[in-house]
Design a protein around this nucleic acid. Structure first.
Length: 557
RNA sequence: GCCGCUAUCGUCUAACGGUUAGGACAUAGGAUUCUCAAUCCUACAAUCGGGGUUCGAUUCCCCGUAGCGGUACCA
């Protein structure tokens, strides 16, 4: 054990020119005036050049929880790993989240600008702050310099493995924890690179209880690892930066992904050794995915799963609000009941409850997401569908963009088919699907190959139906009138207009009205499946309808 | 290996220790004076295994098993 004087000497030896005190920092970042129930939360991603859907999830939860409590949502960039640094990493995160309607009260706006009084919000710009605490913790005798090389560390690990004991730098394996000032001075003199390690006094055999807001009461073992606090390049590790930043920024609850849960004992010890008051935790379970064979679950991975990357949703034009609603549903499963009871409200009106989060990881279900998307889009107006489709097309499909731009009114009419009344169409999942929606209305997209219905209706009869229909076709009539005409025509041509009657004596008829309508459908849309035929024809207009009918006849020979 | 967390229909989940274990998505079938989609109805479908505690266990305890996470000068 070193004496207080020796620790003081050590601190000055390690940080000779650093004079900021911890007290000064607390003056610079005064305690926030937090009212009862207000939550000061932070979302702290690393800029890896990839925005994971899980980040959207935690970011959304964090900002929503903070905002609905009247508190503050902070974005903090954890860029302490120089090896993983990526250009424009911050803008990518900020813009990506903004795209989903997620924004922060404090934090970096881009690489250069920030907002808020508790910054800087990029850890790489807080090095001085970490140094202050590092000097302080050494001075308290709770941390020490360690000059061990990677090779030596590897040797220790090998020995531990052969002995069958826990690997790591702890207890008697931590050879530098009790080094004398002289030994340290010698290495310092040689310029040997070093790290600052925690002087752990925990006992792995002792347990303690802790209350996680999501996981509940859990018992954990004390930490006894002398982990690295400050790397040899002067950057802090996550373990060191987390208690410092969250304290200085006035965070009231640490929300983070489940993978941090095993580090809780360590973080407890660091808070304590730093003399900081422990902040409560809430650990979210991760988004999972079934592995190929359906046998095991695993985290959504950016390498294997395209849907892990938010660009997947952008590229396909998934409505962002629906993605958020799906995520909200995973967070609090009572959201879906709320949605059914409050169909007109926006998800902002829903109150997220931290105690309703699930403990186990949920499987990401793209089918369920699609269902929510269909529902969401079915509630939009034709104009909104047009706007969103255009936004998608601008970035992803030149041809569709051009059509939308040059035929705005026409396209809105198309999107308006079956969008009002009792039968609301729900077949658009994502805005990428708009191409399919438009295709039959533009000759340049119209399929050249008609679906074949000869099996059921012979060519001669088809020709007859179309020839006769052309005679009675008019754009004036209402849907009801139109269908009456089709029925009359069917009767005249020997088709039944009553399904039951037809079923009872098939030999008396050539088919049903449905068959007549089907011939018209294929002639006009090229397909056996289409939106409401009358509405399609109304939008298409007389000239085009006639043209399509003629074209079909000529194609049939 | 060691440490920790978790376990209800295929999926997301609900159920003061007492329910015919509920809902939603998916699937299958049916209805709907044009197809598809939608809508409505119906069906199918679950408490991981074994021990306790209790009059009674999905719920509490223990032991297995499985899944997940951690075991870095990455976060």
């Amino acid at each position: 054990m070193r004496t207080a004087e020796q620790n003081q000497e050590l601190a000055n030896l390690l940080f000779p020119n650093h004079h900021t005190s911890v007290e000064e920092l607390f003056e610079r970042y005064p305690k926030r005036d937090v009212k009862q129930g207000e939550m000061i939360l932070r979302f702290a991603p690393s800029p890896t050049g990839f925005l994971h859907i899980g980040s959207v999830y935690t970011g959304m939860v964090c900002t929503k929880l903070a905002k609905q409590s009247g508190g503050v949502a902070i974005l903090r960039i954890e860029d302490t790993d120089k090896k993983r640094e990526v250009e424009n990493g911050i803008s990518m995160i900020v813009n990506g989240l903004n795209g989903f309607g997620i924004s922060f009260d404090e934090g970096p706006i881009d690489e250069k600008n920030q907002r808020g009084e508790y910054g800087p919000y990029m850890q790489s710009q807080r090095l001085d702050i970490y140094k202050t605490f590092a000097k302080d913790i050494v001075q308290k005798g709770n941390a020490y310099p360690c000059f061990i090389s990677e090779e030596e560390l590897e040797l220790i690990r090998k020995e531990q493995e052969s002995l069958g004991v826990r690997t790591g730098y702890y207890g008697k394996w931590a050879k530098w924890r009790d080094a004398s000032i002289e030994e340290i001075k010698e290495e310092l003199g040689k310029g040997t690179p070093y790290v600052i390690r925690l002087f752990s006094t925990g006992d792995i055999n002792n347990t303690f209880e802790m209350n996680d807001l999501i996981k509940g009461r859990v018992t954990l073992r004390e930490n006894d690892m002398d982990v690295v606090l400050l790397k040899s390049d002067g950057f802090p590790t996550y373990h060191f930066a987390h208690p410092i930043d969250d304290t200085l920024m006035g965070i009231t609850l640490v929300t983070r992904a489940d993978e941090w849960f095993p580090s809780v004992p360590l973080h407890f010890e660091i808070f304590q050794k730093l003399g900081l008051q422990q902040i409560p935790y809430a650990h979210f379970s991760p988004l999972m995915k079934v592995d190929n064979e359906g046998k095991s679950k695993r985290k959504l991975s950016k390498r294997k799963d395209p849907e892990a990357d938010v660009s997947f949703y952008i590229d396909h034009g998934y409505p962002k609000e629906a993605v958020i609603e799906y995520l909200l549903n995973l967070a609090n499963s009572n959201f879906s009941d709320w949605r059914i009871q409050n169909p007109e409200k926006t998800y902002n009106d829903f109150t997220l409850k931290i105690e309703k989060f699930n403990k186990a990881g949920a499987l990401f279900d793209i089918v369920k997401l699609s269902d929510i998307c269909k529902d969401y889009i079915s509630k939009l107006t034709a104009q909104q569908v047009y706007d969103n489709s255009l936004e998608w097309a601008k970035l992803h499909n030149r041809q569709v963009e051009k059509l939308l731009l040059e035929n705005k009114e026409y396209c809105i009419k198309i999107f308006n088919i079956e969008r009002s009344g009792a039968k609301i169409r729900k077949d658009i999942v994502k805005f990428e699907d708009c191409k399919e929606q438009l295709s039959l209305f533009f000759d340049e997209l119209f399929p050249d190959n008609y679906e074949d219905i000869q099996e059921r209706i012979s060519k001669d009869i088809q020709r007859e139906i179309i020839k006769e229909y052309k005679k009675i076709y008019s754009t004036e009539s209402s849907e009801v009138e139109w269908f009456e005409k089709v029925k009359d025509l069917s009767k005249r041509l020997g088709f039944s207009i009553d399904r039951k009657e037809y079923e009872a004596s098939k030999e008396k008829f050539k088919g049903t009205v449905g068959d007549v309508a089907m011939v018209l459908r294929v002639a006009i849309t090229g397909k056996t499946k289409s939106p409401d035929l009358f509405q399609v024809m109304s939008v298409l207009g007389e000239e085009k309808v006639m043209d399509r009918l003629d074209r079909y006849i000529s194609k049939m020979v």
